[in-house]
């Protein structure tokens, strides 16, 4: 796998309150060459986000202490270009997710679906801002939550 750990490996924040799922998803993404940070709650996700430069977030829709859409809009408020994938175990997502997440994926599908979507979103982000300027954009202070 070492050859996949390229110099420009993107950092992905993975948020899910189910430990098994989180571990497996982390390995899946790491195997695909990404640097993966995990959080198992709404609050720890924000803490990790604040402390690290994140290129993309994969967020579970249904979590204890706040759903994925709320987390996504919170993350977007601080970094509006951050690509966000929302995962849902429901067959389809409620209407309010439209316009907040960049993609949403129904759980239970093939692993490749998630990988393909992440590749696509990151490629788009690179085209938009080739000089990785994500830290500069982080201008708004965090709210105390």
């Amino acid at each position: 796998m070492a050859e996949l750990m390229t110099v420009n490996a993107a950092t992905i924040l993975c948020v899910d309150d189910e430990a098994n799922q989180l571990v497996l998803r982390k390995r899946l993404l790491e195997n695909a060459g990404y640097r993966v940070l995990t959080a198992d709650s709404f609050r720890s996700a924000l803490v990790t986000f604040e402390a690290n430069a994140i290129d993309l977030a994969v967020v579970d829709y249904w979590m204890r202490g706040g759903n994925g859409v709320q987390l996504a809009s919170e993350l977007k408020r601080h970094q509006e270009d951050l690509p966000i994938v929302i995962l849902s175990a429901y067959s389809e997502l409620p209407g309010e997710t439209i316009g907040i997440a960049d993609a949403w994926i129904t759980k239970g599908g093939a692993s490749q679906t998630l990988l393909a979507k992440i590749r696509e979103l990151l490629a788009r982000a690179v085209v938009r801002s080739p000089q990785n300027v994500r830290c500069a954009r982080r201008s708004k202070p965090f709210l105390d939550i």
Binding site: R27, L28, A110, S111
Partner: peptide, 22 residues
């Protein structure tokens, strides 16, 4: 009810899919 069942099935299904992929 279907929504709840789908949720309960899809969550482990996701984990199993990823596990087999790995």
């Amino acid at each position: 009810l279907a929504g709840i069942i789908a949720h309960e099935i899809n969550n482990p299904l996701e984990a199993i899919s990823n596990a087999f992929y790995l």
